[in-house]
Every structure is written in structure tokens, then in C-alpha cells.
């Protein structure tokens, strides 16, 4: 594995007496796509929230050379971590353009021209958003909202982009578009930590994968190997995987 950009060791999160995540450890290398798959309620969202500092945690999080325990969100944002949460957390009553400008808030001292240039770069990746730039975020379709959430996160120029279920609730065509963009981002050198229930699509795009079950990392390995692991196939890919594979071929 290349030099780790993110290294998480023995991360634990508890909701009261219930331990939602126990001793989870994972690494994301520079320029890699790493995915965490697992069933509903396995603790995937908890894992991302704890890494980002949305939830308090125990254990070590080392990101971009800085060691931290239970980090604050602002510190992580300032160091170049970005999270697109499952519910997207858009500014619903503000325009697409305002959402994007605010995505670059950590560079607020940038000149207007630099901000505009960053926006134009994103509009090239998400042409649909350019058409909708004046529209209120709440009036966008589900797919467009997901694109906006992704684009807003990218405006912050992240070193590590963390995506929580980016394909959830989207039509198959839009899901394909989301994964196309994820692959494109990797080509641009953005490291990605991806959480997906759509295990088949996640394993296809990722370099390395972890399987999270009941708050523990149950398996890990290169994504291409895990995709053929009989236990993973049985539990997460199964018929759905075969079906998807047939559709893709």
C-alpha cells in the first residue's frame, strides 16, 4: 500500500452503553479508493462520522501527518478532509451556486476570480449543476442533490473525500454516473474512503476494501480479491452481484 494518508487505529464509538464501533483500524493511501462494505447497522456511518469528528470517539486517528484523538470537525476540514454524509446536509433554501461557494469556505481569503475558476472546474465535471446554478437546492432531484453534495465537498479541495452511501435512493442510471465521477476523481488524485451498501459497485471501483460487521472489521483485502472471496460473494454480492455483473457485461 502507498504511504497512508489516513490511518485509523483501534477506533471505538459508544452510544451510551452500546458500543457501535469496536477497535476498528483502517488505512487509506494517497490517491487510493478504499471502500468499507457491510450490512445495515454494521457501524459504517458511525465510522465515517467518528473519523470526521462529528461523533466523539476513542482510539487514534492519524491524518496527513497529524495524530489526533476524537478530532474536531473544523481541524479535519482545515487539514483537507471532507465528508459527504448520507443525508447530504445541503443548504436547502440556498442556490446551487451559493452551496458551492460555501463549499470553498475554508479558502475564504481567496479572491473572487480564484473562486470562480474553482467553480468552473467543477461545472466541467458536473455540467448539470451549471444549468441549475441559480436554482434552490431543495428543488433539485435526488441525483442532482447528490451531485451538488459531491461538488460542494470538492470545492473545499479535499485530500481525502469520504462518501457515505452516495448511491442510496438513486435511480440506476444516476448510480452509474456517481461511480463514473468517483473513478474520475481518482484519476485527478483525490483519495476516497467510500461506504456503500451496493457492495458490487463499490468493490469494482475500489483498490482496497474492508468488511464491517457488528461494529468490527471482519475482513479486509484488495478489492478485486474480496470481490471473489466466497464469504463476501455469499453475504454481500450473492444473486444481486451476479445480476449486476450480467447487466454490466
Amino acid at each position: 500500500m502507498s504511504a497512508p494518508l489516513l490511518e485509523v487505529s483501534d477506533l471505538c464509538v459508544s452510544y451510551g452503553k452500546i458500543e457501535a464501533l469496536s477497535n476498528a483500524s483502517l488505512r487509506v493511501g494517497e490517491g487510493q479508493i478504499v471502500t468499507v462494505i457491510g450490512p445495515n447497522g454494521a457501524g459504517k456511518t458511525t465510522l465515517l462520522s467518528a473519523i470526521m469528528g462529528v461523533l466523539p470517539s476513542r482510539g487514534r486517528i492519524r491524518f496527513h501527518g497529524h495524530d489526533q484523538q476524537s478530532p474536531a470537525i473544523q481541524d479535519m476540514v482545515a487539514r483537507g478532509m471532507s465528508l459527504v454524509p448520507e443525508k447530504r446536509a445541503l443548504f436547502a433554501t440556498m442556490s446551487v451556486e451559493d452551496n458551492l461557494r460555501l463549499g470553498g469556505f475554508r479558502f475564504h481569503s481567496r479572491s473572487r476570480r480564484e473562486q470562480d475558476a474553482a467553480m468552473e472546474g467543477l461545472y466541467a465535471l458536473f455540467p448539470r449543476l451549471k444549468e441549475r446554478r441559480g436554482q434552490m437546492a431543495a428543488t433539485l432531484s435526488g441525483g442532482e442533490r447528490q451531485m451538488l453534495a459531491l461538488a460542494r465537498a470538492l470545492m473545499g479541495g479535499p485530500k481525502l473525500l469520504m462518501l457515505d452511501e452516495p448511491s442510496l435512493g438513486l435511480a440506476p442510471l444516476i448510480v452509474r454516473e456517481v461511480f463514473r465521477i468517483i473513478a474520475e476523481l481518482r484519476r485527478k488524485g483525490v483519495s476516497i474512503l467510500l461506504i456503500e451498501q451496493n457492495a458490487w459497485a463499490a468493490l469494482r471501483v475500489a483498490d482496497y476494501a474492508y468488511v464491517l460487521e457488528l461494529g468490527r472489521i471482519a475482513m479486509e483485502g484488495p478489492a478485486s480479491e474480496l470481490a471473489h472471496d466466497p464469504r463476501v460473494v455469499a453475504a454481500y454480492l450473492g444473486m444481486a452481484g451476479k445480476h449486476q455483473e450480467m447487466l454490466a457485461s
Binding site: 470526521m52 462529528v54 470537525i73 473544523q74 476540514v77 482545515a78 471532507s82 465528508l83 454524509p85 447530504r88 446536509a89 445541503l90 443548504f91 436547502a92 433554501t93 440556498m94 451559493d98 461557494r101 460555501l102 463549499g103 470553498g104 469556505f105 475554508r106 475564504h108 460542494r152 465537498a153 470545492m155 473545499g156
Partner: peptide, 23 residues
Amino acid sequence: SLYGKALRAAAVNRLGAELVGIS
């Protein structure tokens, strides 16, 4: 202004605001 919009954003969606670095 970006700062005014940031304040509005904090009112519209607190988590979203924190995630883009608005303290």
C-alpha cells in the same frame, strides 16, 4: 457577502455548515 451566506448556511443546516468549515 460570503460571511453573511455562511451565517445563513449555519442557520439552514448546522452539520452542513460545520462540514464546509463554518465554525
